[in-house]
């Protein structure tokens, strides 16, 4: 039992990582319906932003991570915005073409990273105040880096919720998701809303990338490690549902951690995937759905 309680913080932290990786997709895929296979590469670029700030510009590791977070948001957000403007918007309504297009973009970005930074992983040192952890009992240990990611995920969620519910731009975004044509007739510039949504979604990928440097390898293929999980979280949560995404990420994290407590990681992954398949059979629309009067 104690061992199971020990897995609770582990599960929460896995969930927080999944949530961070999926938050951006919740916008571009969940809200706009764009299957952006290059989302993983945006995460990767966020991670390299942290590397560049530390290794090329020479910021002190003690605070370069904190500077990297907004910088990465701006860098990947802008990149995503440019992608939407230059390429993706021409493919709206053609999901298969979008999938192939963004997959190709992802490969180009991966190779660009390989040519710029080299194929081997690079080292992004964690700030000293994030190494180590708390030992509560023999079984319960919490790593500072995990706490930081959890806090970051909560911060992002609060900011997004505030934006969606309180700000004018956020309310417009929701209006467009619920009924694009009706929103357009009320005078909302849906093109502008699409561009903003893509900017925010891509920027969140950058933040996730910076956070992931704390717990994993920083290399050209970093994004591919997380892209499948991120899509799963959004699909399980229900498209366009922030609450659904949060619930799905935490549920997957906890499930993973509990199964891993008695089976090894290989088997745990298999069991979790099987559970997902069963869940989607029973509830293909995901945990939560958008209630809408649109004729779709």
């Amino acid at each position: 039992m104690d061992a199971l309680i020990g897995q609770l913080p582990v599960g929460l932290s896995i969930g927080a990582v999944l949530l961070l990786a999926a938050l951006g997709l919740n916008f571009t895929f969940g809200q706009m319906g764009v299957i952006n296979m290059a989302h993983g590469e945006l995460i990767m670029i966020g991670a390299y932003t942290a590397y560049v700030l530390h290794a090329w510009i020479g910021l002190n590791p003690a605070y370069s991570l904190l500077i990297a977070l907004p910088t990465a948001f701006a860098v990947t957000g802008t990149l995503g915005w440019l992608l939407e403007l230059g390429l993706i918007r021409h493919f709206y309504g053609r999901p298969l073409d979008t999938l192939l297009l963004t997959f190709g973009i992802g490969m180009i970005l991966q190779q660009a990273a390989r040519d710029t930074f080299g194929a081997p992983n690079v080292d992004v040192p964690a700030p000293a105040w994030l190494t180590g952890g708390l030992t509560l009992t023999d079984n319960i240990r919490i790593h500072y880096s995990r706490l930081f990611i959890l806090a970051l995920a909560i911060l992002c969620v609060v900011a997004i919720a505030y934006h969606l519910n309180r700000s004018r731009a956020g309310r417009q975004m929701r209006a467009v998701i619920h009924n694009r044509d009706l929103a357009a007739t009320t005078g909302i510039n849906t093109r502008k809303v699409d561009a903003t949504t893509f900017f925010i979604g891509s920027g969140l990928a950058g933040i996730a990338g910076v956070a992931l440097t704390l717990i994993g390898p920083t290399g050209p293929t970093l994004g591919t490690n997380y892209i499948v999980d991120a899509f799963l979280v959004v699909v399980i949560g229900g498209l366009g549902q922030l609450r659904g995404t949060i619930l799905a990420a935490l549920a997957l994290g906890l499930l993973n951690a509990t199964v891993e407590a008695w089976a090894d990681a290989s088997l745990a992954k298999l069991i979790v995937f099987a559970a997902i398949v069963a869940f989607l059979q029973a509830r293909p629309q995901g945990l939560l759905t958008v209630k809408t009067r649109a004729l779709t």
Binding site: V10, V17, R146, D264, A265, S266
Partner: peptide, 12 residues
Amino acid sequence: EYTPLGHTEYST
């Protein structure tokens, strides 16, 4: 303990 190739969650 075994983990799949490319695994990144080692907290457990």
